[in-house]
């Protein structure tokens, strides 16, 4: 049985959790999903629409706000009680904060940041990037179950989640959490930038790189974004230069996204950017340099001047809508 640890915030299931549910379903093994929190029955009900065996709901006032200590204590109890063979979770910042601790608590290995998994010769093989994704490794795990595995965002498609004909049961699981044993005292999350945007939830993203040449041309990209109902984003140099705010940065130091459409304008495709967008379902790259590495990932490659092509695309979109 595969146990998926769900992540949620502000009453909503994290998109990356759906990707993990899809990955678990594709193995053909029985799947359960565990939701941890307080007053989060709605999240559990939403997950219960997926075709899984059941959803486990762990609620406690001490779990109302995420802490590594609280989540570790709660989920360790569930993993032990359920005798899962694999525990799958999205490789989010939250997972990076507590899953290594959870794995260490149970003294079972965690294969982190995987982009694939498959059964071969009666053993699981996990694929994970190494050396900053310049190489990939097939990893085997020894020793008894459970094995913990975190999946890189965008490695699986959230829209491939199989829904059930009717909702699966939500089973409350009682755990005892000693709130005095939780040592992290978190404050309310906040955003530094004004109008901060969560690009991870966007369906379409238009992203600009050095090829946009100057801040006066950002408006052209914005017009394309508007015509596509897309969010505008950028690679790091654009944000460092202040042409777009930092919260619109995609890449290793910015956000990691996996939209349906990622349209890269004048982006070369440095690894620091690519790690943040390579999971996109469709990638369109427009770049003057036909050798730009971004074309390696592109579904549609347009080796042309973006200042010629983008106005034409805007015109085409507007003429048909």
């Amino acid at each position: 049985m595969i146990l998926v640890i769900a992540e949620h915030g502000r009453g909503e299931v994290n998109r990356a959790t759906w990707e993990v549910v899809a990955a678990a379903q594709q193995t053909g093994e029985p799947v359960k999903v565990v939701v941890v929190g307080h007053d989060c029955r709605g999240v559990a009900s939403e997950l219960a629409t997926a075709s899984v065996d059941e959803v486990l709901l762990v609620e406690d006032a001490a779990l109302a706000t995420y802490t590594a200590d609280g989540y570790t204590a709660a989920i360790a109890a569930v993993v032990q009680a359920e005798a899962a063979t694999l525990v799958l979770v999205a490789h989010t910042y939250q997972a990076r904060d507590f899953v290594p601790k959870l794995a260490a608590r149970l003294d079972r290995p965690l294969v982190a940041d995987c982009v694939g998994l498959r059964r071969q010769d009666n053993a699981w093989r996990f694929v994970r990037p190494m050396f900053q994704a310049k190489l990939a490794a097939d990893v085997l795990v020894d020793g008894p179950a459970p094995h913990f595995v975190s999946l890189q965002l965008g490695s699986f498609r959230a829209d491939q989640v199989q829904r059930g004909a009717s909702a699966v049961p939500v089973r409350p699981v009682a755990v005892s959490i000693d709130s005095a044993a939780i040592r992290q005292r978190p404050e309310e999350p906040f955003k530094e930038a004004k109008q901060a945007v969560d690009l991870t939830q966007a369906d379409c993203i238009v992203s600009i790189g050095r090829g946009i040449k100057g801040p006066e041309h950002v408006v052209l990209a914005q017009q394309l974004a508007d015509a596509l109902s897309a969010e505008l984003a950028a690679s790091r140099p654009i944000c460092d230069a202040g042409w777009l705010p930092m919260d619109r940065q995609i890449g290793s130091s910015g956000q990691t996204v996996a939209p349906k459409l990622y349209l890269a304008l004048g982006i070369s495709g440095a690894i620091q950017h690519v790690v943040g967008m390579k999971g996109s379902r469709m990638i369109v790259a427009i770049n003057k340099d036909p050798e730009a590495p971004i074309f390696e990932l592109a579904d549609y490659a347009i080796a042309a001047d973006l200042f010629d092509v983008v106005p034409a695309i805007i015109a085409e979109l507007n003429s048909q809508s």
Binding site: P129, A304, A312, E316
Partner: peptide, 25 residues
């Protein structure tokens, strides 16, 4: 954990190249 195989990742995408005038593209 053991690395069974370390390799250069294969390119998995089929890229379609769009050419022609800006309007055609």
């Amino acid at each position: 954990q053991r690395i069974a195989r370390l390799y250069v990742p294969e390119k998995s995408k089929q890229t379609r190249v769009l050419e022609g005038s800006a309007a055609e593209i």
